[in-house]
């Protein structure tokens, strides 16, 4: 289960200005790997239709899935649902081989929103942010760190950052916010 250290207390990081940063509450995260033949069975077990195009997302209730690679997905769920999801997938393992690994404590998520949220990301992300559709996402890089970027609205993003790199990326984003504020 996720245990946050004192450095990662959920709440606002940058509360005012053209971009707001918020550290989000912990969620259950799973790394899912499987072959195409198992997709229907695992989709049924998770209750989410797994998207098959890299960068596409699907959601059902509080459970969300994003396709990160041709055989790789990240599943986000309510922490309370962890046991249900794990046992549902374990039940079908014999007929639909897959790998479901809980990685809840691996990452933290920062919400980036505000009028200039997309512009702020260009501080370290080489990908064309405009090419990420609303309701889509991708795994990409920001200042040398792998992150998963979820675009929830035109100017609202979630960024999953491995926790050991998180302080560096949050500092970088804060620097960008200060630059906006100083303009």
């Amino acid at each position: 289960m996720t245990v946050l250290t004192h450095a990662f207390t959920p709440g606002p990081i940058v509360a005012s200005g053209p971009v707001k940063l918020t550290l989000m509450a912990p969620v259950a995260r799973f790394s899912l790997r499987l072959r195409a033949a198992s997709i229907p069975a695992v989709s049924k077990a998770l209750g989410v239709d797994l998207p098959t195009t890299v960068g596409e997302r699907a959601a059902s209730g509080t459970t969300e899935a994003i396709c990160l690679g041709p055989d790789e997905w990240m599943i986000i769920a309510k922490p309370d649902d962890t046991d249900t999801l794990v046992s549902a997938c374990a039940d079908i393992y014999a007929s639909a081989t897959h790998s479901l690994t809980e990685v809840s404590a691996r990452e933290i998520t920062v919400r980036i929103e505000g009028d200039r949220a997309a512009e702020l990301l260009t501080i370290g992300c080489p990908r064309d942010i405009d090419s990420i559709p609303v309701g889509g996402g991708c795994r990409t890089v920001i200042d040398g760190v792998t992150v998963v970027l979820w675009r929830d609205a035109e100017q609202s993003f979630r960024m999953d950052i491995w926790r050991s790199f998180a302080m560096h990326i949050i500092d970088l984003l804060c620097t960008g916010c200060k630059e906006f504020a100083a303009e």
Binding site: V54, P70, D128, V141
Partner: peptide, 17 residues
Amino acid sequence: MLLIHCPYCNQTLPEAE
């Protein structure tokens, strides 16, 4: 920077990735 087409993502993306 080079732009490289990833045949798995089916997108043309910056070399830095």
